[in-house]
Simulated scan of single mutants.
Amino acid sequence: MTVVRGLVGVFNGDGGVRGELAYALGKLRGTAECALCDITHRGIRTNAEWKDVVCELAVPFDLVHRNERSAEVARLTGDETPAVVAATDEGYRLVMGPADFAGVDGAAVEFVRVLRERVAKGGLRWA
């Protein structure tokens, strides 16, 4: 069974001043959304619940914007973000796409439950 050594969460938005501003304006207008952002942040601050539950995973969990992805993560996620990719002994594997965030509604605990379920369904195991 393939072992998860780390995770990469990809936000549905670009980083940098321009990307962050575009996302904030889109959020206000109702034209931009990112379920992963809703889980990891409360406004401009990191969600305290996120900080607590991400530690329970016992593997590194990196968060990146679309324009900050590695080439391999970008190949796996394409235009389908937010997403979560597992770094394994055998390379990267997509474990969550946008549809997998349905019903999580910004709750970090529920996100981790779904993540664990998707990891298991993908034939992966935790380090």
Score class of each variant (00 low, 15 high):
residue 29 R to G: 04
residue 59 V to A: 06
residue 64 V to T: 07
residue 47 N to L: 08
residue 39 I to R: 01
residue 50 W to E: 02
residue 22 A to P: 02
residue 16 G to S: 07
residue 46 T to C: 01
residue 46 T to I: 15
residue 44 I to F: 13
residue 53 V to P: 05
residue 14 D to S: 12
residue 22 A to N: 09
residue 20 E to I: 11
residue 38 D to S: 11
residue 13 G to F: 00
residue 38 D to F: 02
residue 40 T to F: 00
residue 40 T to N: 04
residue 27 K to T: 07
residue 50 W to M: 03
residue 36 L to M: 03
residue 40 T to W: 00
residue 44 I to Y: 10
residue 59 V to P: 10
residue 49 E to A: 15
residue 22 A to F: 06
residue 63 L to Q: 08
residue 17 V to M: 14
residue 30 G to A: 09
residue 34 C to Y: 00
residue 18 R to I: 15
residue 61 F to G: 02
residue 40 T to M: 03
residue 55 C to Q: 15
residue 36 L to V: 02
residue 61 F to Q: 03
residue 33 E to H: 14
residue 33 E to P: 01
residue 60 P to I: 08
residue 39 I to W: 01
residue 58 A to F: 14
residue 18 R to K: 15
residue 12 N to T: 00
residue 15 G to V: 01
residue 30 G to K: 10
residue 52 D to Y: 08
residue 41 H to Y: 14
residue 45 R to F: 13
residue 49 E to L: 09
residue 44 I to T: 13
residue 51 K to H: 06
residue 49 E to P: 03
residue 62 D to E: 15
residue 60 P to D: 11
residue 47 N to K: 06
residue 56 E to H: 10
residue 25 L to I: 12
residue 12 N to R: 01
residue 35 A to W: 00
residue 59 V to H: 07
residue 22 A to Y: 01
residue 19 G to V: 03
residue 62 D to P: 00
residue 61 F to H: 04
residue 64 V to F: 03
residue 51 K to Y: 03
residue 18 R to E: 15
residue 52 D to T: 13
residue 33 E to G: 13
residue 14 D to A: 06
residue 36 L to P: 07
residue 48 A to R: 11
residue 48 A to S: 12
residue 18 R to T: 13
residue 35 A to C: 02
